[in-house]
Design a protein around this nucleic acid. Structure first.
Lengths: 250, 250
DNA sequence: ATCGGGGATGACGCAGCGTGAGGGTCAAGC
DNA sequence: GCTTGACCCTCACGCTGCGTCATCCCCGAT
C-alpha cells in the first residue's frame, strides 16, 4: 500500500496525475483511508504501468480506459488505428513543412530581389543540368525508366505497397521471435515476398539483394524500423534470410 | 464593408472563428455599427489571409499575433523555428509508431505474453545459428561491429539522428525546389551532412554511396518519403548530388 | 405587424493535467 | 501536549481554438 507520492515517484509522474486518473475513473486507489488518503496496491501499480504505456504511445485516456476495461475491446485494432492516425499526422506535418519552405524561399527571394534578381530564371536550365548529370551516371534509360515506373504508381497503389511492406516486416518479426531458421521455408517465403516487393521498382541480382540486407543491418534507421530495441538481432536475421534467398533463388 | 457571415464564407471559416479572433484581439473589425454589428474592410481581409496562412502551417494564434503586430519580429526566424518544431514532432511520432509496431507484433504472437519474456520464444541456439550465418556472409567483425554500434545509441541519440535526417531531407527538398545545382556548394554541404548521417553506422565508399543514391531513386518507399507527388524528380536530384559528392569527396 | 435570416453576447465543453488556494493529517522532536 | 515540517485532500481556474447551444436583438420584406 503506497501513498500518492510514493507511487508518483516510482512511476515518474505527478501526484496531480494520479488525482486526475482517479477523478476520471482511469485508475482508482485500492483503498481509501478514513482520512481520505489514497492507497495503491500492486494491482493498481500494474494497471498504472499499462496506462503509462498506452499514454506514451499517445493514446487518449478515454481510449486507454476502453482498452483496459472492456475485455471485448480489441487492443490490436486500437493500436493499428492509432498507428495510422500517427502516420497521417506525420504526412500532415510534412506538407506543412513543405509550405513553410516555399514561404521561406519566397521571402528570401524577395529580399534578395531588392538588391539584385540573381535567382531569376535559373530553375529550368539548372533542373535540366542535374538531370543530365544523373543520366550520365546511370544511363539515360535507367533513370527514365525508374522515374517513369515510380511515377506510374497511383496513390492507392503506393498505399497498397506500403501496407504490403508493413505486413512483410511484421511477418519477419514474428518469425524472428519464434526463433525460426532464416533458411526455413516459412522465412524464405516471406523473403520471397520481400524480394517481390523490392522488385516493384528494382530487380536486384543476388549480390545486390545481399547488399540490401547488409544495408538493413548497418543503417540505424532500418534498425529502428525493425525494432532493434526489443528484438536485438532482428535485422541480422532478415539479412541472413535475404542472403540465403539470394544464394538459392537468384 | 462585409458582415461576419460574408467574410466567413469568403475565407472558408466559421463566424465563431471571427468572433474568437476579435475576442483575443487577433483580428478586430474595421468598424462596429451602433447595433454592435462587426464590419470588415479590405485591410482586415488582407490581415485575415495572413492569419489563415500562419494558422495553416500550425502556428499558434499567439505567435501569429506576434508575427503580424510586432514589426521588429522576424517572420523568417519564426517560420524556421516553427519548422524545426514540426520536425521534432515528426521524429517523436516516428518513435511512437516504432513502439506501437513492437507492441502489435508482440500481441500478434501471443496475447498472454508478459513483458518480461518478450524473447522467451527464441532459443539461444537458434539465435546463435542465424548469427553465425550472418557472420559467414559479411565477416564476424563487420557484423559484431555494426550490431554493437547500432545498439550503442541511446534513445535520445536515436531521436536526434532521426531529427537530423528530417532536417536533411527538408533541406534537400528546399534546394530542389529552388532549382539548385546538385554540384553547387549549398547542395553539396547538405549531401555532406547526409553522408555523415549514413556514417553513423556505415562508412560507404564512393561506389556504395552512389549505389545508395540509386536506391533512393528506384525504391518507391523512398520516393514516397521524398514527396514525389509534390516534387517529381526530387529523388533524382538527391541521387545526382550524392553521385557528385562520391566523385569529389570519396 | 410579422416573419425569416442574420447578428450579438455569454457560457459550457474538450484533453490532460499544472498550479496555486485553503485547510486537514501524521510522525517526530521538544 | 504542542509545534513543526512533510504530506494529504478538495476545489477550481488556466491553457488551445474554436464547436455548439441558449437567449435575445435587429433589419428588410411582405
Amino acid at each position: 500500500m503506497r501513498t500518492v507520492r510514493q507511487v508518483a515517484r516510482a512511476a515518474g509522474i505527478s501526484v496531480r496525475t494520479l488525482h486526475h486518473y482517479d477523478a476520471v475513473g482511469l485508475l482508482k486507489p485500492g483503498h481509501v483511508g478514513a482520512n481520505g488518503y489514497r492507497y495503491y496496491g500492486k494491482e493498481e501499480l500494474l494497471r498504472l504501468q499499462q496506462i503509462l504505456f498506452y499514454r506514451e504511445i499517445g493514446l487518449p485516456l478515454a481510449e486507454i480506459a476502453a482498452v483496459l476495461d472492456d475485455p471485448a475491446f480489441d487492443p490490436l485494432a486500437a493500436l493499428r488505428e492509432h498507428r495510422a492516425a500517427l502516420e497521417g499526422r506525420i504526412g500532415h506535418y510534412r506538407t506543412l513543412i513543405c509550405t513553410i519552405d516555399r514561404t521561406i524561399a519566397s521571402l528570401e527571394k524577395d529580399e534578395d530581389m531588392e538588391d539584385n534578381d540573381y535567382y531569376a530564371g535559373i530553375a529550368p536550365e539548372t533542373r535540366d543540368r542535374w538531370q543530365r548529370e544523373a543520366e550520365e551516371f546511370w544511363g539515360k534509360d535507367a533513370v527514365a525508366a525508374a522515374a517513369a515506373k515510380a511515377r506510374s504508381f497511383s496513390k492507392e497503389q503506393v498505399a497498397a505497397i506500403q501496407a504490403e511492406m508493413e505486413s512483410i516486416r511484421a511477418d519477419f518479426q514474428r518469425l524472428f521471435r519464434e526463433g525460426a531458421d532464416p533458411a526455413s521455408d516459412a522465412v524464405q517465403a516471406v523473403t520471397d515476398r520481400h524480394y517481390r516487393w523490392v522488385s516493384h521498382s528494382w530487380t536486384p541480382d543476388a549480390a545486390e539483394f545481399r547488399g540490401l540486407g547488409r544495408y538493413y543491418v548497418e543503417n540505424p534507421e532500418f534498425r529502428g524500423t525493425y525494432d532493434d530495441d526489443k528484438l536485438p538481432g532482428c535485422p541480422e536475421f532478415i539479412a541472413a534470410a535475404m542472403a540465403v534467398y539470394a544464394d538459392r533463388s537468384l
